[in-house]
């Protein structure tokens, strides 16, 4: 079951392969983000090189799918036809302290009218759309 009504643009890996590992992992219920093999620093979103040491030896590594709410928004006004009957929904920005504080964007599952506390602990929930064309997985978040 998906959090938002069907019909929004579906995410695809970039044709140049930069973020392919992220999407492939998400389809397997694994959260992977970029880590520099040279300096071991984390980075997100994906870049071709490490922004710290400029090495191009940057890989993807599985991380604990947990974080804390860095910020959030409750959306009311639909800006896409697919959301006309949606009602309010929550978008969260989740910080991963275990990865140099990189942040992930997702929906915050549960009651869309719930009170949200910045700093609250959350964990990832993998929302699969295997039958879509193209198939994809969204990484959603839920308060612990």
């Amino acid at each position: 079951m998906s959090y938002l009504h069907a019909g929004l643009p579906k995410p695809m890996p970039r044709p140049d392969g930069l973020d392919a590992a992220y999407w492939e992992a998400a389809a397997q219920d694994v959260l992977k983000v970029q880590r520099c093999n040279a300096c071991k620093g984390w980075q997100w979103g994906p870049e071709w090189i490490c922004h710290r040491c400029l090495s191009d030896d940057v890989g993807f590594e599985a991380v604990a799918p947990t974080g804390r709410i860095y910020s959030y928004e409750r959306v009311w006004h639909p800006v896409h036809p697919a959301l006309q009957e949606q009602g309010p929904y929550l978008v969260a920005l989740v910080e991963l302290p275990q990865c140099d504080g990189i942040r992930m964007v997702g929906n915050l599952l549960g009651n869309p009218r719930q009170a949200v506390r910045i700093g609250a602990a959350a964990h990832a929930v993998f929302e699969h759309h295997a039958d879509d064309d193209p198939a994809f997985t969204l990484v959603q978040w839920q308060l612990d």
């Binding site: 938002l4 929004l8 643009p9 579906k10 995410p11 695809m12 970039r14 973020d19 979103g45 928004e73 959306v75 800006v79 896409h80 959301l83 949606q86 929904y89 978008v91 964007v105 997702g106 929906n107 994809f136 969204l138």
Partner: peptide, 10 residues
């Protein structure tokens, strides 16, 4: 945009 738009952030 693939990391934001599918979540209704656009």
């Amino acid at each position: 945009m693939a990391f934001t738009a599918p979540y209704g952030l656009m």
